[in-house]
Design a protein around this nucleic acid. Structure first.
Lengths: 384, 384
DNA sequence: CTTGATAGCTCAATTGAATTGACCTTAAGT
DNA sequence: ACTTAAGGTCAATTCAATTGAGCTATCAAG
């Protein structure tokens, strides 16, 4: 084995097993409780192979038999389902001033959540705070430490040096540090790093409105406007992990973020004398005329952006979500008029072109946990 | 085995072998002639596994020992390289009025090329003409029929029913026919279908300027303007295979295709009395003032489009190419002023942000053949 | 000119995991 | 009761990768 994981690693019996294990778990999760034969048909494996894998997984507590059902003829099928408490993931959302965390089980349910203020958001302090959050989460939920599959961390992007003006959201002190290996060595467990939009996109696939979808885009309202692209059932991350910087795209001569973001709404509201620093305050100003004006303007710009995404990426659907009240997302969706001159205006559509994300405003934190769980359910050749 | 190939098929010993074979071939092709030990290090396989695979591949004629080189100490390494005549691919570019074809060897060299006029471009006639082209190609080049790995076909997209106005380039009679399975059954060999931009993008990776790159976008000048997106070393195809419709994207209120395409240039030239129906005629009018005006306007629009792509996809580079004279592509590249407010304006770049494609104006036809070859060199679990 | 180190490679045995085919179990239809 | 259908287990086989011992060719040092 090389030290540097190659782009395409060689395959062998053990990696085949890992791949097929993920295949079994994924089928059980997405298609619901299933019997061996059904999983075998869906995966192309022999029933015997599925049997062996199921024996492993039940032994490890990841899978559980949930009874037998006599459907048609024949022997009643032994139904297996993911055991929610077979594994857990800690999702951490890092912001310059605080870290939020959620401990989630395999079913995606939050067992514990917490928050810690950050005086400085540099690598050392962050590692320490995540460590504390993990301890609190495990203690507070009674979860056994060796049932923690990994920690997902959502950081504000873009990562590395780019031509984009350093937004106020970027974390200081991380310029020289590659977050994933650093945190992995400090925390002693698997760490997945993503930006908020990507995490939100993954969360929707795991337990939101994008279940079963393989191609979609998620427009994420954070401080600015982010974009998570899922293509061929995987995240599109780009050469440096920074794909999806849609906020800086110019629509009608203005950066999309200036028109369609929480910051742009807050600016408009506070100019009119409303407090608009938090989601709650924004929610309180739902009926303000400024909110209506913002909706109209934002919807016009977003409409063009969505058609742009449709034409470039040919997704099954575009999802809107993030740290905005559901009512505002719905308001945007109802106001957005999508051009029929788009790839996506196909007559045989089954899904709407726009949907609202299901995860609500804790999307990013939940998404961080979802990143870890997603790895368990996604066949991969490259690691354990 | 299921009949429908599942999204993620199960893995077994035989599929592992196929995967690892592709891994070996890919290394030898991209890194040049190599010895067993080097391939083993790069792939993470044991030297023994590499030995066995090399024995297979040389037996099949796909790989050949090209001598031994004593570099440093130790036993001189037996160097292996792809045997160019070990396999061939027929690339076919379908247009409404004609089909062009190239027979290419494993090294990407064209051994034969030809063209047949099409009276009707419906499925039956096209299958017949491709059959004839194959026979002519094999006869004309002396290649053994069982050395033909497959046929790559480039068709004008978008495929299926979309909201885009049916361009004049679309082929009639294919509305009800899924091209790949239809042609596969008619031609009795593997068939790969793509649009022109995707094929061009793959061609650049196999033998052009994108060798070794895993993230890039190819702006393709065909009749209109197409976009091939390579992400994570694979084509981004979208839910219905139509990703990359950049021609319909609006820049400053106009469809990009109206400003930056061969058709737009031809319209401008012919309004000024120049013939501009073919690439040759366009080449003859290189110094016309209308050409200069077109270059300025097209470059301005393309500059915005490129920054858009950079921000959405975070590619290593954006490549321009297709059926335009090299001088015009170079003219565009030199005129395009890229905003520094872009993800791609990172200080540590090693590649320019824009490059000209290497394949010239037969890009699409060569790309069609490259599609077939690419499969041989790309590890895949899903098929033979 | 010998000797040791280094690197590449081969042979034979082992191991991991999937497949195959025979057989068992349970239920529905006749 | 008997047949059919469906799910599942057991044991043997097969495929392909790994492991470790041993061979070969070259360079470098004594």
């Amino acid at each position: 084995m090389t030290l540097q994981t190659p782009r395409f690693p060689g395959s062998n019996a053990e990696r085949s097993r890992l791949w097929n294990r993920a295949l079994v778990l994924r089928h059980v999760r997405t298609a619901g409780a299933s019997g061996r034969a059904e999983i075998a048909r869906a995966s192309g494996l022999s029933t015997q192979a599925v049997s062996n894998i199921i024996a492993d997984l039940t032994g490890e507590g990841l899978l559980a038999e949930i009874g037998r059902r006599q459907a048609r003829r024949g022997l009643p099928v032994a139904q297996y389902a993911v055991a929610p408490s077979g594994g857990h993931a800690l999702g951490v959302e890092l912001r310059p001033d605080a870290a939020r965390a959620v401990l989630s089980d395999l079913a995606g349910r939050a067992l514990w959540s917490g928050r810690r203020a950050l005086a400085h958001a540099g690598p050392d302090e962050v590692a320490g705070e995540i460590n504390t959050l993990r301890d609190e989460a495990l203690a507070g939920s009674g979860v056994c430490p060796d049932r923690l599959l990994g920690i997902g961390v959502v950081m504000p992007g873009p990562f590395g040096h780019t031509g984009l003006a350093a937004a106020a959201t970027e974390l200081p002190g991380w310029e020289q540090t590659d977050p994933a290996p650093f945190l992995e060595s400090r925390l002693g467990c698997a760490v997945v790093i993503e930006n908020d939009a990507n995490a939100a996109a993954v969360a929707e696939r795991l337990s939101g409105v994008a279940q079963g979808l393989e191609h979609y885009a998620f427009l994420y309202f954070g401080a600015g406007l982010g974009l998570g692209i899922v293509s061929d059932a995987g995240l599109l991350r780009g050469a440096f992990g920074n794909a999806g910087e849609i906020g800086h795209v110019r629509i009608d001569g203005r950066r999309l973020e200036e028109v369609a973001s929480r910051v742009s709404l807050a600016r408009r509201l506070s100019a009119a004398g409303h407090a608009a620093g938090t989601v709650e305050e924004i929610e309180a100003a739902l009926d303000a005329p400024e909110t209506g004006q913002w909706l109209d303007e934002a919807a016009a710009a977003l409409g063009q952006a969505v058609v742009l995404l449709e034409n470039l990426l040919d997704p099954q659907v575009v999802i809107l979500g993030g740290a905005l009240p559901d009512a505002l997302i719905d308001g945007l969706i109802s106001r957005i008029v999508l051009s029929p001159a788009s790839l996506a205006a196909r007559p045989d559509r089954t899904l709407p072109r726009l949907m609202r994300g299901a995860a609500g405003r804790m999307t990013a934190t939940h998404g961080a946990a979802a990143l870890v769980l997603d790895r368990l359910f996604t066949p991969r050749l490259d690691a354990a």
